[in-house]
């Protein structure tokens, strides 16, 4: 622990220097970044397309995944260097085993910006599930125990004094199918999927997650513990480029201060919904644009709340501390 603190002090000094001048990284360093083809992963896409990674001397290759969970395992196995995903029980367990560290924040819930929605199946809605207050005794879809869906369901039901039955369905696709056919009653999901389903009348939107979990740090930036501790320059470079990408993305599609954002949608469309025609994809991309934290700042309070919830549910070891999970030397924290 003492060595850690000493190194951290040095690292903080280095971070100060970075703010003043771009570090002179001689050779381009090859790194692999894990990503899902979701709008919420756009900061990395922007950083690559607009050359921010190249500016900090990183030669980035993307590796695409179908789900967040395997990305955490891929970081642990050193198949990828950096990734963005929700904090899950698996992520915490891997951090406990000394494999990974969370180094920054990405997606956040914010009042006033369209965030994650609470959904009810049509049958459940017809039977009276018209607001989260009626959730008691209902079934709640999750991918896995310990997933962000489980966390949201738990927080929402706690706030409403409701008891939920959790149905693990492994994949988002399976959940959508089960919800459409009213096999499960309720779920929460990012806005573009929620609006897509709600708009088609396949499900009913009954509330906002932000009302129950304000300032919810939905996804985080993470890397291997080895990178966080020993690859200072590359990691700082990644955070810097990622932040620049996030800033462009927020300006274009969240704050809408950079024109109509069509350029940004075109950029994102290369990675997300690439199999759909542009006009259709544009709608989904715009609808799914949530704020990516400025400077990849991390909401430690929210992360702590999530960690405590995992512990209270017995999903992770009770001895895990916030320090085991986080390396806060790279970004601003709140």
């Amino acid at each position: 622990m003492t060595t850690f603190t000493r190194r951290r002090t040095l690292q903080l000094a280095g971070a100060g220097a970075l703010a003043l001048a771009t570090p002179a990284i001689a050779a381009k360093r090859k790194i692999t970044v894990g990503a899902l083809r979701f709008t919420s992963h756009s900061a990395s896409f922007v950083a690559l397309e607009r050359g921010y990674f190249a500016d900090v001397g990183l030669d980035v290759e993307f590796k695409f995944f179908q789900a967040a969970q395997p990305m955490a395992v891929a970081i642990a196995s050193k198949d990828i260097d950096y990734a963005v995903t929700a904090i899950s029980g698996g992520l915490v367990s891997l951090a406990q085993k000394g494999a990974i560290k969370v180094i920054g924040g990405a997606l956040s819930e914010e009042k006033g910006i369209d965030g994650q929605k609470i959904l009810a199946s049509n049958d459940a809605h017809a039977a009276g599930l018209t607001s989260p207050a009626a959730l008691d005794g209902k079934t709640w879809a999750v991918t896995q125990a310990g997933s962000s869906f489980h966390y949201m369901g738990s927080k929402i039901s706690a706030a409403e004094g409701a008891t939920l039955k959790y149905k693990p369905l492994q994949k988002v696709g399976a959940i959508i199918g089960a919800l459409k056919s009213s096999q499960v009653d309720a779920w929460s999901i990012v806005p573009h999927i929620a609006k897509g389903l709600g708009g088609a009348g396949a499900v009913q939107i009954i509330g906002d997650v932000a009302d129950y979990i304000p300032n919810y740090q939905v996804t985080t930036v993470f890397t291997s513990a080895d990178n966080a501790a020993n690859e200072r320059a590359a990691t700082e470079g990644f955070v810097k480029a990622f932040s620049a990408g996030a800033a462009d993305f927020n300006a274009a599609l969240v704050d809408k201060t950079a024109g109509d954002g069509t350029d940004m949608v075109k950029l994102v469309h290369k990675y997300v919904y690439a199999d759909r025609e542009f006009a259709k994809a544009e709608k989904s991309i715009r609808a799914g644009s949530m704020r990516i934290n400025q400077g990849a700042a991390l909401n430690v309070t929210s992360v702590e709340d999530q960690l405590n919830w995992f512990k209270s549910e017995g999903l992770v070891d009770g001895d895990i501390t916030l320090d085991t999970l986080l390396d806060t030397s790279y970004v601003e924290t709140a």
């Binding site: 969970q69 955490a72 395992v73 642990a76 899950s88 029980g89 698996g90 367990s93 891997l94 085993k97 991918t143 896995q144 125990a145 310990g146 997933s147 039955k165 959790y166 149905k167 693990p168 369905l169 492994q170 399976a174 089960a178 096999q183 499960v184 999903l315 992770v316």
Partner: peptide, 20 residues
């Protein structure tokens, strides 16, 4: 995999996703 809260299979899948 689908919709089981209890069961050896569900237990294994949960352990896998928690990397336990």
């Amino acid at each position: 995999m689908l919709g089981a809260e209890y069961g050896i299979g569900a237990y294994i899948l949960e352990a896998g996703s928690l990397y336990d």
